[in-house]
Amino acid sequence: MVAVGVLAAACTRAPATQKSTDLRTEVARLQRTSALLQRQIELASEKEFYLVIDPAASAVSLMLRGAELQRYPVLGLQIGHPRVSWVGRHDPRPWQGTIWSNGELDPPRQIDRLVIQAAPPGKDVAEPEPAEIPPTAEELYPVPMRYHIRFAGGLSLEIRPREADANAGRWARLWASWSAKWRDVAAAILTRDRDAVRLRMAMNPKDAESLYRSLPPAVRLIVLAGGADAAADSK
């Protein structure tokens, strides 16, 4: 009789506990959504360019003042933490929902400026040679197989064009992976503040190249957590 009573009580309490847990999860989700929206408003109100990675939409957008200038699909997203001799070194600081600043390309996009010293006025200038057609951005800026956008504070975006090395020879691929391994080893051992967290993004080769060529200097970044939530809430 007592057992039946306990069972009945448990059955009635279980849905109530479940409901309470759901409500708490909902409150936590709403708190996070609000915090993320607040930070996006902050980014949109300033003059710097910024990137928004939205894992829910599998996209990264280049933005300025709330306007989406360019949107690139993200084919895969991974989180990397350094480890030394199999011992992981997790940075306890939150990276998601945080505003990261001063993002710069590594290797940098080199700009070779042509400097012309004008002839003094009135001086007979030699017949100008037919001007050479300047190179296009594609000819001017070769894009590496993988590159980073490094932010002050220790977050690094590692962009890997999917199958970018498919056209490269076997030795070129081997060399690329060997040198990448050594760079990773050096980064894990030698630097604590740089590359404390890496986000590896796989992108279409054309998009990865376009992002490399177009990224403005000192870009900022935010990684959203629940991109779809905000839209759902507004309805």
């Binding site: 997203l77 991974q78 989180i79 030394v84 890496r198």
Partner: peptide, 8 residues
């Protein structure tokens, strides 16, 4: 075992 460990 030195470098970066990636997780989805």
């Amino acid at each position: 075992g030195t470098g970066y460990r990636y997780e989805p």
